[in-house]
Simulated assay, not measured.
Amino acid sequence: MRSLTILGATGSVGTSTLDLVSRHRDRFTVEAVTAHSDAAGLARVAREHGARFAAIANPQAYHALKAALAGSGIEAAAGPDAVVAAAERSADMVLAAISGSAGVAPVLAAIRRGITVALANKESLVAAGDLVMSEAARHGVRILPVDSEHNAVFQALAGSRIEDVETVWLTASGGPFRTWNAEAIAAATPQDALKHPNYAMGAKVTIDSASLMNKGLELIEAHHLFAMPADRLKVLVHPQQAVHGMVGYRDGSVVAQLGAADMRVPIAHCLGFPERIDGPSRRLDLAALGSLTFEEPDLVRFPALRLAIDAMRAGGRAPCVLNAANEVAVEAFLARRIGFGDIARTVAETLDALGTGPSAATLEDLNFIDHVARERATSTMHRAVSAAS
């Protein structure tokens, strides 16, 4: 039996994980679950899977969670510290699926307890990659990649030496704006941007997929996960989303991982690793697909990807600033305070102002850089809105 703590249990990745757990109750138990503010949903999954501890990040939802768990014997807690406490509980694996930089502290907490981390929170490595990976090395902790692209690369590497790798490709669907011109993209509404062609995801990651910022964040994540030099990491737009990642080797071989566009495939790989477990996802039918196509990303129509690539190459605090500014701008876009094209402009101006300097050496450093970048991004947007009006 493998015990699991699931951070972000009510989100899309958490729900897919619990679906797999319910199909393999002879292999997995659930120690703890967390959510941001969905007290009813968190209580439901905690009861269904026999969790011992449930933490809600939003303190205002504590009483609702406590009431929903009354009589169950499941301990309830609330606030960011409670989410960290969940990550520190005794478990064999922590599946980290919290969206945004809020996931960094619990990921570090799990690592420092020596717990294997199945990572679906890319911001942990984007904002604090040097810190997280150094702590993982110091505590001898394995980080298993849950994101489909990184899991694909992990499988394609299959123990090969990094020195033998020439190129790593992460694939992108191209999002809903793959064929749109630059003017149409800039004028896109939140409803337009939330129409991802293949995956059902949370709002923030779906917007990032539309701008291709998500793919840029994934490049930075891959840079840290695989200790891969930035110049060996590339993106290919692949609308069919059958190939999730590829590794090209020095002898000319290219190894690719293929599968259905279903997050239960990479999650199952992590849950069972180093073994394989049965998964319910649709099996890939290559004959039915007929053809697989690939194209270079357009960095002019999708400037967010270019900004992320530049931040990856710059290193230091640039990726943390990039991530913080993007989170602020995406939130503003979803609230219709700025336009879609303003997301990349906000990130660019914030990077120009704050992107130079060393990376965070501690969680306190990270929080400071993140806070300053968010304030700068917010003021940048306010100035732009004032000037436009």
Rank of each mutant, 00 (worst) to 15 (best):
76 A>W: 09
42 L>N: 10
17 T>S: 13
249 Y>K: 01
299 L>C: 05
376 R>Y: 12
325 A>P: 00
178 R>T: 08
75 E>F: 02
160 S>A: 15
238 H>K: 09
386 S>L: 15
83 V>H: 06
6 I>L: 14
389 S>A: 14
292 L>C: 07
172 A>Q: 08
52 R>E: 14
159 G>I: 13
308 A>P: 01
200 A>L: 05
31 E>Y: 00
112 R>K: 15
237 V>E: 06
318 A>H: 06
75 E>T: 14
273 F>V: 00
199 Y>Q: 07
199 Y>K: 07
91 A>H: 14
332 A>W: 00
382 H>W: 06
319 P>K: 13
116 T>M: 12
221 E>W: 09
235 V>D: 05
322 L>S: 06
147 D>K: 11
185 I>E: 04
81 D>H: 10
196 H>N: 12
122 K>Q: 09
323 N>I: 05
381 M>T: 05
365 D>S: 06
363 L>R: 07
222 A>N: 12
61 A>D: 04
87 A>H: 11
189 T>R: 13
320 C>F: 01
254 V>W: 08
197 P>K: 01
274 P>Y: 14
325 A>H: 07
66 K>W: 04
109 A>F: 10
120 A>N: 06
358 P>I: 13
81 D>P: 00
105 A>D: 14
244 H>F: 11
246 M>C: 10
349 E>P: 00
61 A>F: 01
193 A>K: 05
98 I>L: 14
72 S>W: 02
100 G>Y: 02
259 G>P: 07
186 A>K: 11
303 P>L: 12
215 K>L: 10
128 A>Y: 08
308 A>C: 08
270 C>W: 10
361 A>H: 11
272 G>T: 06
259 G>D: 09
374 R>Y: 06
52 R>W: 01
220 I>D: 07
68 A>Q: 09
69 L>G: 11
301 R>K: 15
179 T>N: 13
285 D>L: 04
76 A>T: 07
153 V>D: 04
217 L>R: 06
